[in-house]
Design a protein around this nucleic acid. Structure first.
Lengths: 335, 335
DNA sequence: CGGCAGGGTTGATTCGATTCAAAAGCTGCG
DNA sequence: CGCAGCTTTTGAATCGAATCAACCCTGCCG
């Protein structure tokens, strides 16, 4: 258990602790000969820096926190990956917290990250975290909102134009002849979801004979997609929509799966289907799924970059970067 | 920036720092009245414990490290989830590192976790980490091997019988009339992959007229699955296998996707296909995918439980828990 | 030969929470 | 009143790395 510390290394190398520290942190200040002796001692003893002590002294850790809505959603996995890559370039690591769309879990991670004095936070918020993040900023922890356009101009944000994405999806459904559109998504408290719905509404409004109904679900998962499909299948044929826009691909895959299993509804014959995110599995599903693509990894990278930029120049104004989504048409919404 | 510490809280509450610490860590030792005063002060100042200082004093952090092979693989996402849930029950958090099947990345995470003096490690190893883990244990960091049966009885492990799983899959293919079986997987340095292949070999050996060829790929991803499929499609019809056993579902989905896109190969008509892991997307793919199910979340939970048990009684012998996989038959391998 | 520049090295001090031996209060009993 | 036996409270010491003012050389210049 006997942990090896700088003092032990210093003793063995016959130098002071200050020199050991210099070897590790300011190698240019140390003569080559001394550096070799110190490195030998480090290897011999198997010395490993204690990060807690480092952090305590430094005042903040070498990690960023990332709070995502759903770790099982490949969109967020990609986003995390982008963030990790960019952070690694700056010598930082990323700690991921999964809020599972629950604001208590979100709050718990914010607590944890604050205790850990992380360098900064990237967050895809569930609840209203504005006041909370403002307090954190007063203590020197900067936040960047991820995948949510911030009207609250006091924080930087990276997002995709979800209103445009929603409109894009529904306009496409209308162009291919569909009229009775259903939106499946939830919770509407999540900004991305309500924006996509707003876009869908706008697209339907452009066309007098098109209608939109909104079917709310409790989470953006495959499971909820299956449940939503059952509700539709239970209706008499005439009352079913002729197209469904799902708030994300997991829901869409659930819908697709349940439609196929029922044998009652053919896609795209009876119901055209389009999802959102264009995850890897979308193109590999029962009927290849149309979707609205977001640059997930790029969002993560950009968020980290904004965070680091703010850290370097704390006086700089928060920036809002917004990317445009892209329509990907496949068999599930064919003519 | 002025950070609030216990001293500030103590001053405002009119008590000593020892008492503040007791309120937080040993509430029974403190009179109710004092506790109230201290809590008021904490709220008023917005005091948040500094985890680095805590850890430094305590000698180890309140987190476990989990090193997985691929964050994009839903199998590992599920496994992580199980680990997180179980750790949360013990008041610990889990820090996830993604090695991406690269031993340098694996080593980097082990370095990081050692510097952070994590409570323990759960690892799904790429390379030979035995010596490394032994050194860590000498310093008081226990490890549990995840999803890999340890012959090295000096570490606990939680695994699934991959040899049995591989045999199960191939036996099923043979029973449904297939004879020219191909195994697609890699790298073979990963224990799970080579075990599944060994199982496949054993199953083929039971049947004189069945043959097995092994197609090695560089990673267990959808992308590599697509590449492997292209290689098969490029062969003349007669030289193609009549069944493929993919080392995991991501590969299988890639194969399926490429076969479908080519129009050259029908599944299961020309080639029957079976994957491994039974991820959520398996049942939702172009042709619902047969697979070998592993209890992913349970593996994560059990690993954490073994870790905590060892931490409580360091003299206890390492345990090896092995679960049995389960065959899930769907359309992709139908008669 | 004195003075001075500057590369190398030193080690006491700092960060903030926790611990624990000792002190201080308090109660009740002889 | 004194004291044993409690419950509370106290605050100096501790964890380990980083810092930085002070110091020691060595070499060079006037």
């Amino acid at each position: 258990m006997a942990s090896v510390n700088v003092k032990d290394v210093a003793r063995l190398a016959g130098v002071s602790i200050g020199t050991v520290s210099n070897v590790l942190n300011h190698p240019t200040k140390v003569s080559a000969e001394t550096a070799v002796r110190v490195h030998d001692a480090i290897d011999k003893l198997g010395f490993v820096r204690n990060d807690a002590a480092r952090q305590l002294r430094a005042g903040s850790s070498r990690a960023l926190g990332l709070v995502i809505l759903d770790a099982r959603n490949p969109f967020f996995t990609e986003l995390s990956r982008g963030a990790e890559d960019e952070a690694a370039r700056a010598g930082l690591s990323v700690i991921i917290g999964n809020s599972d769309e629950a604001s208590e879990r979100e709050a718990a991670y914010l607590d944890l990250f604050e205790q850990q004095r992380l360098r900064g936070l990237l967050i895809s918020p569930v609840g209203d975290v504005g006041p909370r993040l403002r307090r954190l900023r007063e203590r020197g922890i900067r936040s960047v909102l991820v995948d949510r356009y911030s009207q609250d101009t006091s924080f930087s944000s990276v997002s995709v134009d979800d209103v445009a994405g929603g409109a894009m999806a529904v306009r496409h459904l209308i162009e291919t002849g569909r009229r009775r559109i259903a939106f499946v998504g939830g919770s509407l408290a999540i900004r991305q979801v309500s924006d996509r719905l707003a876009g869908a509404r706008a697209a339907v409004a452009e066309r007098a004979d098109a209608t939109l109904e909104s079917i709310e679900v409790s989470a953006l998962t495959v499971h909820e997609g299956v449940a939503a499909a059952r509700r539709l299948i239970d209706r008499p044929r005439g009352k079913r929509p002729d197209a469904v826009f799902a708030a994300n691909d997991l829901l869409a895959i659930g819908l697709l799966q349940a439609f196929a299993a029922s044998g009652e509804v053919s896609v795209p014959g009876d119901i055209a289907l389009i999802g959102y995110d264009d995850i890897d599995f979308a193109s590999a599903s029962v009927v290849p799924l149309s979707s609205v693509r977001q640059p997930a990894a790029l969002i993560g990278e950009t968020a980290v970059r904004l965070m680091l930029a703010e850290a370097e120049d704390p006086t700089a104004k928060p920036q809002a970067v917004e990317y445009q989504p892209e329509l990907v048409i496949r068999a599930s919404s064919a003519g």
